[in-house]
Design a protein around this nucleic acid. Sequence first.
DNA 1: CTGAAAGCGCTTACAG
DNA 2: CTGAAAGCGCTTACAG
Lengths: 358, 358
Amino acid sequence: MRTRLKDVADHLNLSTALVSGVLNKRPNVWASEETRQRIVEAAEKLNYQPSAAAQALIKGKTDTVAFVYRRLEGFNYRLAYSGLVDALSDDLQTSGYDLVVANFATQDDVLRHLQKIASSRACDAVILWGREDDTEPQGELLEKLRVPFLVKGRHERSHPTWNQIDFDHEGMMERAVDHLADLGHTRLAYLGFPHDEGYVHALRRGYFSAHRRRFGHDPDGRFIGEHEDHVAPNEQTILEWLRLPESDRPTAFVIGAGNSAWQTLETCLAQIGRRLGYGASDYAAAGITSLFFTLMFGEAVAFQGIEIDNLARLASPGLLNAILRGEHTQPVHRFLPSLTPAPTLDLLRHGVKFGGSQ
Amino acid sequence: MRTRLKDVADHLNLSTALVSGVLNKRPNVWASEETRQRIVEAAEKLNYQPSAAAQALIKGKTDTVAFVYRRLEGFNYRLAYSGLVDALSDDLQTSGYDLVVANFATQDDVLRHLQKIASSRACDAVILWGREDDTEPQGELLEKLRVPFLVKGRHERSHPTWNQIDFDHEGMMERAVDHLADLGHTRLAYLGFPHDEGYVHALRRGYFSAHRRRFGHDPDGRFIGEHEDHVAPNEQTILEWLRLPESDRPTAFVIGAGNSAWQTLETCLAQIGRRLGYGASDYAAAGITSLFFTLMFGEAVAFQGIEIDNLARLASPGLLNAILRGEHTQPVHRFLPSLTPAPTLDLLRHGVKFGGSQ
DNA sequence: CTGAAAGCGCTTACAG
DNA sequence: CTGAAAGCGCTTACAG
């Protein structure tokens, strides 16, 4: 059997109350310095650790935070979540909390589980992650059940008091527009996602407002392409843009989409003998990428690997601790990363030559 | 306050013993069908869930599995771990267990934490993940402390009785060699990692043994390149190979490395006007990739996204449940994925033409 | 069919 | 300085 408090007390011929008091450094516990020494040493020697279950029962708290989310399909969200658990668990561990992970296939299962952990007092707080469609009802349930929680996403309108974190998607697109405008480009195009989700709208919003601010007018409606993260749909749009007369077509691209948009852009440019870069005849691009992004031919700046763990670092321990202790904090947190030069294979300079297609 | 057993009992004017017995469907508990009904309904109505802490204290088990590992630097391991927590948590949840995640920067911290969760009875079993250098002492500690555990990795020699899972790295390289040999290639080269780790050695071992089996002799010592996952070092080796007379140089590549090896291989081939594929003048390749891999010019087969969650699916619930219940199972599990065609941008066929380098 | 009692391992007043 | 006692919320014999 593992060592209990009683074992330590018996070992020293002391009462459990004294041993407990000393070990927990409780004030108003009087013991000689020598006794304290003996207690601490015996506990160490016997590898005594208080039973987590007994502690939880007594204190009414479990020193545990639950990370609950609905599983999404596909690798994209895997990448987005990669590193998140690392960061969360690390920070929580530092504050003495364990991270319990539970994910489910359906929203119903998630809600059922939230109800369950609330009723069984299985954790002190909850972290919700995922799409707003899912997390909103989840947060509402926890609010009703009076469980402290932190939610990833953009709920500032519907629930301005919720503790929430997310990227500053608007700000990211503004930075991209500013970068391209500073380079002297005036005809910008936008490549985004077609999904009806908070961050997608926020990216688009940021692009539009920055465009108006820099150029005094809305973007050209023809130069908005919103497609799934695959080559084919992006290709059709980009080729159309590039078929316009040179004086008319976009020379710079703001990308609020995935790696496929970048790859397709480079491929299409290559077909007309052009590349991304900073030369007089080069096109330019700036925007979001997934992890592990490498340009093939040219150069560009990007928010690389929208590293979700940066978000997690932002969340904890400060914010999460505040939640756990019921302190009142500024609820809405937004994280704005920086544009950095993307790695490139630089195939052209590398001596790649192709005489024609096979 | 949350609903306690006593609240349900009081609500119905019954004893807690009876309510507990009925709710847990304990045999030898006699209650009329009507009483049972009332108890179940009241529990539901009051949202009663037994206190996790009290249950744990009484039963001596927490219905919790700890997933403990040392954090590694860099994105590669992030990718490798991506999806793992999803899969583990999902399967465990199905069996009624929660997954508690704890990771640390140093091995000392990990060992300290393992000692702690063992002493405080914080979980019923542990999953160890990481490099063998780290997991071996971790497993030895848990063995000493009599905590059931499952470890990722190759400990079949040092600890053949440990419950362990990993990819069948030898088998993967054998499949790659067979694929290339079946295509008619006879001069193979190997691109691998330089690290002194179990899986690296296993990949190399698989390559060598398959080569001997197919060709009756060891691989040519010149055609072994083992480099970090970057372009430059791989490039030097590959260019050297391609500078040999055609009758002498390798025409097929077994890749036991990361995406950089693939990218570099395609780039180098392009410089001599060649590509990966199945034509008479094409070179061929087969092997491992990271997630999100796309060929630029040619075609090849690969173990795509050595999806670690496949490993997790393999581990649980069967294996893990067996561990939790102390059943004796076959301890060593190895997973052998299949070679599948890699996605390609197929730039050449797409009409990309380059007249020369800039 | 039903209820009082002990006990899981700990903490916390409280009386000596 | 020290120890007996109650209680956290539950389960499990055991006596009625």
